[in-house]
């Protein structure tokens, strides 16, 4: 027998490294890495919104833009592959200006009150979302509550496409939601805006998990926030393994007052990549110590 098979992966070809300059410092990253990866390797903190490590970069928010020598425009670091010899500036006046403006644009039309990181970055870049006149257009829609599992608050939606990707071919392949309409009127929507229970939605909650602004929110969180009892600083997060089948999905149980308030999965766990199914995401109510485990019949 002459066949030789690597025990770990089909393709373990030697990695090619590329050298790229980030703010004057040379950084070596493997081929295929992005400029953002290189920024991270260089220890440069970069604001992102539509980027997630477990989704394909759509580079729609343009918050992570950096300046590259030889490029007429700024480039999105999240999706631009690093190439040998690139010279990148992450803190030039142009970069700071564009990031500030993106944050201002978002702040001028969207409720970012529950997008903690954006608030910090807005302060950092000096974004002033109030300078757009007395009544800049915004979405102004009531919160959509159509079931007991999660809610949709379009006033908080920044149209980052993450939920669409998680529902679509980055994870769930259900495609219950898509972007509809165009321009400022574009919305994340089911077909003809039918309700989620009527749609193809299978309630995996993966859209909720990737939402950066709480526009999609688990009902448990929404209810606790409504009564002022949502206290994330007190949450204990414990990683365990889902019991609903033999796949071995890791669950992060977010617990407040010995009560489970939310379930997520770690993005860097290679079984789930952060994605779960309806049972893993929502099937824990029976664990709630506050609920009596009485007869099952």
């Amino acid at each position: 027998m002459t066949a030789v098979y690597n025990n770990n992966t089909a393709d373990a070809s030697a990695e090619v490294a590329v050298t790229i300059s980030i703010d004057g410092a040379d950084v070596i990253v493997p081929e295929g890495a992005t400029v953002l990866d290189a920024c991270n390797a260089a220890g440069v903190d970069t604001p992102t919104l539509c980027y997630a490590e477990n989704l394909t970069a759509v580079n729609a928010c343009r918050l992570c833009v950096v300046e590259m020598d030889g490029s007429r425009t700024l480039i999105p670091s999240c999706s631009r592959p690093a190439e040998d010899g690139m010279v990148i500036k992450t803190d030039s006046e142009r970069v700071r200006h564009s990031r500030k403006m993106v944050l201002e644009f978002l702040g001028s039309g969207v409720d970012l009150s529950q997008a903690d990181e954006l608030g910090t970055w807005s302060e950092f870049y000096g974004a002033d979302a109030d300078r757009y006149g007395p009544a800049p257009a915004r979405i102004n829609e009531p919160v959509k509550i159509q079931d007991d599992l999660y809610i949709r608050d379009y006033d908080k939606c920044v149209l980052c496409y993450k939920c669409v990707e998680a529902c679509g071919d980055d994870a769930q392949h259900t495609f219950a939601i898509s972007v509809s309409g165009r321009g400022f009127d574009a919305r994340i929507s089911t077909e003809f805006d039918i309700t989620l229970p009527d749609s193809a939605c299978v309630y995996c909650g993966n859209c909720v998990a990737v939402c950066p602004t709480n526009a999609l929110q688990f009902k448990t969180e929404f209810d606790l926030r409504t009564v002022g009892e949502w206290r994330p600083e007190e949450h204990e997060v414990t990683t365990t393994v889902c019991s609903y089948c033999g796949v071995g999905c890791n669950l992060e149980m977010h617990v407040q007052d010995n009560t489970i308030v939310k379930v997520t999965s770690p993005n860097d766990h290679d079984v789930t990549s952060g994605h779960l199914c309806i049972k893993g995401r929502f099937g824990w109510q029976y664990v709630q110590p506050t609920i009596e485990r009485g007869p099952t019949t």
Partner: peptide
Amino acid sequence: GQCVPCRVGAV
């Protein structure tokens, strides 16, 4: 409507 600068900036 895809990118923020254009979607919001144009409005």
